[in-house]
């Protein structure tokens, strides 16, 4: 009897946290899915089942937006890890890390839009980057890097913002390697490059993957940065969804775009979860 009572208490305690999350996520996902089938209309309030939205969702602007969003988010995630990994390894060895580490965290703590403005300043038509390149005679005419169709500005901002975030994860992963494992390898005659290649990298590569996936999810779903520094066409998916809903009042298509974005995000969250499990079980050792 006593055991049963305790058992029930435990589940009740889940309610404030998980119940809250569950309720609101299920509600908003439910509205989104219902909306994509034309039910529970935002404007007229009428409910009529229709497949109209799903038939028309793969329009040119959607396909362009999908391509743009995938390209910028994949590139941002890959460039970020390419910057972070060596920097974290260097920083871990350096004595300067005590005061560099808190400073490098600044971009993680300031709003993404601050980064958006700061970076746009640098790479604008007559921004610092173009001026310096002109001064060095590398280019003869300023490059158009902001609001450009390739989304270079968007990628630059995401990298600026996400490197510190990755740095926090990677740094704790590198710090987490026990010193005796490295000492052991050194005793067995490995030089520092071999230690790096055979110990540090294998033990931290799954953390790197985790941070790449998290960064990808963040940038894939980004609205603010790509709508301020990105091109008008193609838009990012989040921007397209919001514009479709609020500017074109086409809530059915917006619902469809939302469902598709959620599916992509869920797939990557599952990947992240599986990898996280592998990490916890001491994968790679």
């Amino acid at each position: 009897m006593k055991k049963k009572k305790r058992f029930e208490w435990g589940y009740l305690l889940l309610l404030p946290g998980l119940g809250y999350i569950g309720f609101f996520v299920v509600m908003s996902a439910g509205i989104m899915i219902a909306q994509s089938f034309g039910m529970y209309n935002a404007i007229t309030g009428e409910t009529a089942f229709t497949l109209e939205g799903w038939q028309g969702v793969f329009s040119k602007s959607f396909v362009d937006a999908l391509g743009f969003t995938l390209r910028t988010s994949v590139l941002s995630a890959l460039i970020s890890i390419a910057v972070t990994y060596p920097l974290a390894l260097l920083l871990q060895k350096s004595k300067a890390r005590k005061w560099l580490l808190p400073l490098i965290k600044i971009p993680y703590f300031v709003p993404g839009l601050v980064g958006s403005f700061l970076i746009v300043n640098l790479i604008d038509y007559h921004g610092l980057l173009n001026e310096v390149l002109m001064l060095l005679h590398i280019i003869s005419e300023p490059l158009r890097l902001r609001n450009d169709a390739n989304g270079i500005a968007v990628i630059a901002i995401h990298v600026w913002k996400n490197v510190p975030f990755m740095m926090i994860i990677m740094f704790s992963a590198i710090e987490g390697i026990r010193q005796d494992v490295k000492d052991c390898a050194r005793n067995l005659g490995a030089n520092s490059l071999q230690v790096l290649w055979h110990i540090t990298i294998p033990l931290t590569v799954s953390s790197a993957l985790v941070s790449v996936i998290l960064t990808f999810i963040r940038t894939f779903n980004d609205y603010a940065i790509s709508s301020t520094a990105g091109p008008m066409h193609p838009m990012s998916l989040a921007n397209l969804m919001k514009t479709t809903a609020y500017s074109y009042n086409d809530w059915i298509t917006a619902g469809c775009i939302g469902v598709l974005m959620t599916i992509v995000t869920v797939i990557f969250m599952v990947l992240y979860t599986v990898l996280g499990k592998y990490l916890q079980n001491g994968g790679g050792k």
Binding site: L18, M27, I217, T262, T265
Partner: peptide, 20 residues
């Protein structure tokens, strides 16, 4: 299950939670 809110794009959550 804790991660559920992360599995929904921020803008999608905002738009449809906003309606609620």
């Amino acid at each position: 299950a804790m991660l559920l809110p992360m599995a929904m794009p921020g803008m999608a959550m905002a738009i449809f939670l906003g309606r609620l």
